[in-house]
Design a protein around this nucleic acid. Structure first.
Length: 671
RNA sequence: GGCGGGGUAGCUCAGUUGGUUAGAGCAACGGAUUCAUAAUCCGUGUGCCGGGGGUUCAAGUCCCCCCCUCGCUACCA
């Protein structure tokens, strides 16, 4: 069996790891651990993706250097991964000497082979900030529909696409000044040179069929040269023989896989070329999100090919995570960071839950929080742990913690578990984790049925000691097999099991023979049930974190996403035109007026508004106002307020109601 | 608007190349049991398989149209 090298996509050093990222790291980690406990030579590498404009800007905003920012985030990421039991052999950084050397080598070799050309490009430049502005860093009004404050490349209102040059009243998203156009020489990687090679490689079995299909679309559209340079100042590596020009972050990001391994190989006196030059000696697998397929299945293999390196054996894409059936959302409290989770819950709950959902396809997976609690408690605590919990007591009470001297008659269960282990292993290998979990739980059911049938509690009463000990010995053996099979998913619990049963290890092969005649440790709970309250606490903690800067929404998306709220976020506020049908002062409240509003199809609302000082009830009757219709009802001293009426004010206390133009009807949506 | 994925029991999902009365886990309900972290065991499902057409001896499974939903995307990686 050839050694294998495995990677997960590099998280961008611009934000925290969240539950969406973890789908990938958990998936990869399970796969890696599976190979390791089967005795396969397997290494797992990853790194922080550290370069690019967003990092540079964020560091500038925080008044620190990009290096300092990147270092801080690195420490945070490493801690998150460690606590989620992600077992990297090495976690590196793209802002490293190894990465610079390799990036340069890949570039220079490709350049010398004629795969790089230059071309003048017109680009927006902000004089005040002193940088060229990526499209997403330019805001202005849509040239097509006039919508205000749109990005430089497309209008989120009317869907028009355009060049930032066409944007009206274009201004820098950072400082607000209007950018000027400057011409600049850019470097391009001639992807088209590699078309024959890529067409073949993508059909070589390295990709899932869905992904290969997607690629054929891109081939049909034609492969265009890739702009790989950015003008300084830019946080990244300067391009050799091109002062002031830097590698675009996506050029050196995947090289981070190599850099991480190089750093590790140097520390361990291992041969880099054996892995990265010779496809006959080793295998290389990349786990990625489906959003970054383009980089990993076109640019990356082409760059490697052009530089004389081997190409990956396989690229495995997974889908996105939804929570409660919807995209993660800060306002719903479902944008949950790794740390928010860890502060309340055990990482192995999540690892197991993801395992029950993961398969080899690219489908999105849903984390339904109610389902999460029920599933983990029922499967892990109720079925698996319970097996040990319900039998270990007898072993200690009656047999000084010793198992039977010989392995007893067990109705063929041990053998059955071993047979099943073969197909479970196959599922793991094929990344069909959900099938593996189902198969394991089916075995756990069988083991519990066995205990039920033998009724050890009855045997104890009837003083049938030998049968009692035998029953427990069988149950604990079966428990051991289950825990070995779950080891890739639940490494911490597997380790606790190893200690509990006094075993040497929890590897796959050592389970071929049953244990007997040995002593076990007293049973202590191997896992606590998921507490619903903790889940709720996690959700509300996440909701409170509204003000934190947005981070990228999937494994690696390192471009320009960090500015402003999205249209979707805005649309979550349901603003409606409402007609005041009744207004009155509130007894005992000197600032409030009670308004009764007609909101058309939404019915009638009673709202308490703090505008008594500026409006008399009589003056409001029949007027139109704007209501926040989906605000949670607020219980106040003077009654419940079912929404909020919008008013303008400068903070000094004076308020002016926002009034819809004539013609608007109650119930109309404001947008 | 484009592309892609979904729409199967209350929930999460399986359903191979179309072929016996459509399945699993969880939940629910009834019963048993009490060793166990109220765990376990037995039993219980008349589900317009999103809708409408069509192909076929036979369709959840193939073809066409439509609806809903999710994600991505917005001549760009």
């Amino acid at each position: 069996m050839r050694p294998i090298l495995v990677t997960s996509a590099l998280p961008y050093a611009n934000g925290s790891i969240h539950l969406g990222h973890l789908v990938e790291y958990v998936q990869t980690d399970i796969w890696v651990r599976f190979h390791k406990i089967r005795g396969r030579d397997c290494l797992y590498f990853c790194a922080d993706d550290t370069h690019g404009t967003p990092i540079m800007i964020r560091a500038r905003n925080e008044g620190i250097t990009p290096e300092t920012l990147v270092k801080r985030i690195h420490a945070e990421h490493v801690a998150d991964f460690r606590d989620f039991l992600i077992g990297f052999d090495h976690y590196h950084s793209t802002n490293s000497e190894e990465n610079r050397i390799l990036s340069e080598e890949i570039y220079v070799t490709n350049r010398n082979a004629g795969h790089i050309h230059t071309e003048a490009v017109m680009q927006a430049y902000c004089v005040k900030d002193g940088i060229f502005l990526p499209d997403r860093f330019i805001r202005g009004n849509c040239p097509a529909c006039g919508a205000l404050d749109q990005y430089g490349d497309a209008c989120e209102s009317c869907s028009a696409t355009y060049s930032p040059l066409d944007l009206k009243e274009a201004h820098c998203a950072l400082c607000g000044t209007s950018p000027e156009q400057r011409e600049s020489e850019h470097f391009f990687f001639k992807l088209g040179d590699f078309e024959p090679f890529l067409r073949e490689w993508t059909r070589s079995g390295a990709l899932q069929v869905q992904m290969a299909n997607k690629l054929s679309e891109w081939f049909d559209a034609g492969l265009k040269a890739w702009d790989i340079s950015r003008d300084g100042p830019y946080f990244g590596f300067e391009i050799p023989d091109a002062p002031g020009k830097f590698f675009y972050v996506w050029l050196d990001a995947p090289v981070g896989y190599m850099a991480a391994s190089l750093s590790y190989f140097r520390q361990h006196g291992m041969d880099f070329d054996r892995y990265w030059r010779d496809p006959d000696q080793t295998e290389i697998y990349h786990f990625i999100g489906k959003d970054i397929l383009y980089f990993h299945t076109l640019f990356w293999p082409a760059m490697l090919k052009g530089a004389g390196f081997r190409t990956p054996t396989g690229v495995f894409a997974h889908g996105f995570l939804t929570v409660n059936g919807q995209k993660m959302s800060k306002s719903r409290g479902t944008f949950i960071t790794a740390r928010d989770y860890l502060e309340q819950l055990d990482p192995e709950y999540l690892r197991y839950y993801y395992a029950t959902k993961l398969a080899k396809g690219v489908d999105d997976i849903d984390m339904n929080l109610d389902d999460f609690v029920l599933r983990v408690n029922s499967d892990l605590v109720g079925k698996v742990v319970n097996l040990a919990s319900r039998t270990a007591g007898f072993v200690h009470k009656h047999f000084q913690g010793r198992l039977s001297g010989d392995y007893p008659e067990d109705q063929g269960l041990f053998q059955l578990f071993l047979t099943e282990a073969r197909s479970i292993a196959q599922h793991y290998h094929e990344r069909e984790f959900s099938r593996a979990m189902r198969a394991i739980m089916a075995l756990a059911d069988k083991a519990n049925r066995f205990v039920e049938e033998k009724a050890p509690w009855a045997l104890a009463k009837e003083n049938r000691m030998e049968e009692l000990q035998d029953t427990c010995t069988v149950a604990l053996n079966l428990f051991r097999l289950l825990m070995v099979q779950l080891h890739p998913v639940l490494p911490a619990m597997a380790e606790k099991t190893r200690v509990f049963l006094n075993l040497q290890d929890m590897n796959w092969s050592t389970t071929l023979l049953p244990i007997f005649g040995t002593a076990i440790q007293p049973f202590s709970p191997l896992m606590q049930r998921v507490d619903v309250k903790k889940v709720q606490a996690m959700v509300s903690a996440s909701r409170e974190m509204d003000s934190v800067p947005a981070v990228t929404s999937s494994a690696v998306v390192p471009e320009e996403k960090d500015i402003g709220i999205t249209m979707e976020t805005f649309m979550e506020v349901d603003l409606r035109v409402a007609k005041i049908t009744h207004a009155e002062t509130v007894e005992g409240a000197d600032k409030l007026l009670r308004l009764v509003l007609d909101v058309g199809p939404l019915g009638v609302r009673s709202v308490l508004a703090g505008i008594r000082a500026f409006y008399t009830p009589e003056s409001l009757l029949g007027r139109l106002v704007v209501l926040v219709a989906n605000l949670q009802p607020r219980k106040m001293k003077f009654g419940v307020s079912e929404g909020m009426v919008l008013a303008a004010g400068d903070g000094s206390g004076k308020l002016f109601l926002i009034v819809p133009d004539s013609g608007a009807e109650p119930g109309m949506r404001v947008k």
